[in-house]
């Protein structure tokens, strides 16, 4: 794939998707979105990041409802959702698929409406995950006129490609294919129809400057909350303590 880890590429893409947001909330099992936020912070961007399940300390003092109250008020710009299944209309299923039980809907049925933008993120890119129609709608990708909704999907990022969401057409458009994958492979592995321009760009890899930050201050910021992840991505490559050299 290149002289960088897949996780580093994905974190770079998410950092670009976050863009100039003021407040990003990151859920429990989300080391790559957390890495993207740490990359923006290391670059000096003015970004407030609320890590919901920090082991020591967290941004809230009113209990776990505070996140939802903040989102309801419009104080959260970007949120992340995954899914056991995601379909071509950006519906998300966190409950059950093919007879298998998954943990449950969490706050998705609210956060997908209340956060200004939601980045859908699922590393596995297969017909098992990206389906024509989800078996259970935990949270719908769009709402009819007249139903209150502040925000919705911004993009779908997988381990193979980046899709942009087109609210007017209620369809995804293939934005770029990651180095190492091809358009043909993306078509083979995607269970829903999507739009696609005449040529498809390759996803931009992390720059040298981004990689230096990722392997230094970002690795050090991520390790306390995601020790296994940090060890997997960075320990084998270049120890965070030596990266400033």
């Amino acid at each position: 794939m290149g002289p960088y880890a897949r996780e580093e590429l994905l974190a770079g893409v998410i950092a670009r998707l976050i863009g100039d947001a003021a407040h990003v909330a990151v859920g429990a099992a989300s080391p790559i979105p957390a890495t993207a936020c740490a990359l923006l912070a290391a670059r000096g961007d003015k970004l407030r990041v609320s890590l919901l399940h920090k082991r020591k300390g967290n941004p809230f003092s009113e209990g776990s409802r505070e996140l939802f109250d903040l989102a309801g008020q419009g104080r959260i710009d970007v949120f992340f959702l995954g899914g056991a299944q995601i379909d071509g209309e950006a519906n998300v299923n966190l409950v059950r698929a093919e007879g298998r039980r998954f943990p449950g809907s969490f706050g998705s049925a609210f956060m997908y409406f209340a956060a200004r933008r939601t980045i859908l993120f699922r590393e596995e890119h297969s017909r098992r995950v990206l389906v024509p129609k989800v078996e259970f709608v935990s949270a719908p990708g769009s709402s009819p006129p007249g139903v209150w909704r502040r925000g919705g999907p911004q993009a779908l990022l997988t381990g193979k490609a980046l899709f942009a969401w087109q609210p007017g057409r209620r369809r995804f458009r293939l934005e770029s294919v990651h180095p190492g994958s091809s358009l043909e492979e993306v078509r083979d592995c995607t269970g829903f129809e999507f739009d696609c321009g005449p040529t498809v760009a390759a996803t931009a890899p992390p720059s040298a400057a981004e990689l230096e930050l990722l392997r230094g201050p970002v690795a050090r910021a991520i390790a306390p909350n995601y020790p296994a992840f940090a060890a997997k991505v960075w320990l084998s490559r270049s120890p965070p303590s030596a990266a400033s050299a």
């Binding site: 809907s105 049925a109 409406f113 209340a114 719908p140 709402s143 209150w148």
Partner: peptide, 10 residues
């Protein structure tokens, strides 16, 4: 009352 949720199979 709560915003959102409408359109979920829940």
């Amino acid at each position: 009352p709560l915003r959102g949720v409408l359109g979920s199979d829940l």
